Deep mutational scan, measured.
Amino acid sequence: SGEEFIAMYTYESSEQGDLTFQQGDVILVTKKDGDWWTGTVGDKAGVFPSNYVRLKD
């Protein structure tokens, strides 16, 4: 389980282990570690910068 966040911006990365997503995607955040959080979008999982998302209303 985790908290749902909304992507405010598209995040694209070629780094292994990074979670890429489109603006407006719902991200289920499973771990918060400083500026880099872990989460899932659909069947993808990985880390992403926390300043790209906001808490879902």
Rank of each mutant, 00 (worst) to 15 (best):
V26Q: 10
Q23D: 07
S13A: 11
G39P: 00
V41H: 15
Q16K: 15
T10Y: 09
V26E: 12
T30G: 04
Q22F: 10
D18E: 13
P49V: 00
F21H: 03
V41A: 14
K31F: 05
T38E: 13
K32S: 06
F48A: 00
P49N: 06
G39I: 00
Y11M: 09
E12L: 07
Y52Q: 04
G34A: 07
V26K: 12
L55A: 13
G2W: 07
K32P: 07
D33V: 13
V47D: 11
G42H: 12
A7R: 00
F21W: 01
G46A: 01
D35V: 09
T40R: 15
Q23Y: 08
W36H: 06
T40F: 05
V47I: 12
K32E: 10
E12Q: 14
E3N: 11
K44W: 05
D18Q: 08
D33P: 02
D18W: 07
G2M: 07
S1P: 06
F5R: 04
F5H: 10
L55Q: 14
L28Q: 13
E3K: 08
F5M: 08
T20K: 11
T30A: 07
G17C: 12
V41K: 15
G17E: 14
S1R: 06
T38A: 11
G39R: 00
G17Y: 05
Q16W: 07
K32F: 04
N51W: 08
R54C: 10
Y52F: 15
D18S: 15
D57N: 15
A45G: 10
E15C: 09
T30H: 15
G42Y: 04
S13G: 13
S1Y: 09
I6R: 06
A7E: 00
D35Q: 05
T40E: 15
D18N: 10
V41E: 02
M8P: 05
S14N: 14
M8T: 08
K31N: 15
V29G: 04
G39V: 00
T30E: 05
G17F: 02
A7W: 00
G2T: 15
T10K: 10
D18L: 10
L55H: 09
V41S: 14
E3A: 06
S14K: 12
T30D: 07
K44P: 01
W36S: 11
V29A: 04
E4A: 06
A7K: 01
T10F: 04
N51K: 11
T10D: 11
T38R: 11
K32W: 03
W37E: 04
V26C: 07
G2Q: 12
E4W: 08
L28A: 12
V47E: 08
K32T: 11
V41C: 06
A45H: 15
N51F: 07
V26Y: 06
K44C: 04
D35W: 14
T30Q: 13
F5Y: 15
K44A: 05
V26I: 14
A45W: 12
V47L: 13
S50H: 03
D18I: 12
D35S: 15
I6H: 04
L19Q: 03
D18F: 13
E3F: 09
G2K: 15
T20W: 06
L55T: 12
G24P: 00
D25W: 01
D43V: 11
V47G: 09
T38V: 10
T10C: 04
K56Q: 09
V29R: 02
T20Y: 07
F5C: 07
V53N: 01
F5S: 08
F5A: 11
P49S: 03
K32N: 09
I27H: 03
G24H: 06
T30P: 02
I6E: 10
D35L: 11
V53W: 01
G2E: 09
F5Q: 03
G17P: 05
D25C: 02
M8S: 12
D43N: 14
Q22E: 07
S14I: 00
L19P: 01
E4M: 07
